[in-house]
Computed example of a mutant assay.
Amino acid sequence: MQFADRLNNVETSAIRELFKLLGKPGIISFAGGFPDPAMFDVEGLKEASANALTEEPGPALQYGATEGYQPLRDQLSTYMATKGATVAANELIVTTGSQQALDLLGKTMISPGDKVIVEGPTFLATIQCFRLYGAELISAPIDAHGVKTDELEKLIAEHKPKFVYLIPTFGNPSGAMLSLERRKKVLELAVKYNTLIVEDDPYGDLYFHAAPPPSILSLSKDVPGSRDLIAYCGSLSKVLSPGLRVGWMIAQPELLAKATMCKQFSDAHTSTFAQATASQYLKLGRLPAQLAIVRKVYAERA
Rank of each mutant, 00 (worst) to 15 (best):
A176C: 12
M177D: 01
M177V: 13
L178F: 13
L178E: 14
S179I: 01
S179R: 04
L180K: 09
E181H: 12
R182C: 04
R182Q: 07
R183Q: 14
K184R: 15
K184V: 13
V186K: 02
V186H: 04
L187S: 09
L187T: 08
L187V: 10
E188H: 13
E188F: 12
E188G: 12
E188D: 13
L189E: 02
L189Y: 12
L189A: 09
L189H: 11
A190G: 06
A190L: 04
A190D: 06
A190T: 07
V191S: 05
V191K: 08
K192Y: 04
K192F: 08
Y193T: 05
Y193H: 15
N194F: 06
T195Q: 10
T195V: 14
T195G: 06
T195Y: 11
T195H: 11
L196Q: 14
I197R: 02
I197P: 01
V198C: 14
V198K: 05
D200K: 02
D200I: 00
D200S: 14
D200G: 00
D201L: 14
D201C: 12
P202I: 12
Y203Q: 05
Y203K: 06
Y203L: 14
G204Q: 13
G204T: 10
G204P: 00
D205A: 15
L206D: 10
L206Y: 14
L206E: 11
Y207T: 03
Y207G: 05
Y207K: 10
H209Y: 15
A210R: 15
A211T: 07
A211I: 02
P212V: 00
P212M: 00
P213S: 07
P214I: 03
S215G: 15
S215N: 13
I216W: 06
I216F: 03
I216N: 09
I216Q: 09
L217D: 05
L217C: 08
S218D: 04
S218G: 07
S220Q: 08
K221N: 11
D222S: 15
D222T: 15
V223T: 15
V223G: 06
P224D: 15
P224K: 11
P224N: 10
P224Y: 10
P224W: 08
S226F: 05
S226L: 05
S226Y: 06
D228W: 02
L229H: 10
L229N: 06
I230D: 13
A231D: 06
A231E: 04
A231Y: 01
A231L: 06
Y232S: 12
Y232P: 01
Y232K: 04
Y232N: 07
C233R: 00
C233T: 12
G234Q: 00
G234W: 03
G234N: 00
S235G: 02
S235T: 12
S235K: 01
L236S: 11
S237P: 00
S237V: 00
S237G: 13
V239K: 03
L240T: 13
L240S: 08
P242S: 08
P242N: 10
P242G: 04
P242R: 04
G243I: 02
G243V: 04
L244M: 14
L244C: 09
L244P: 04
L244S: 09
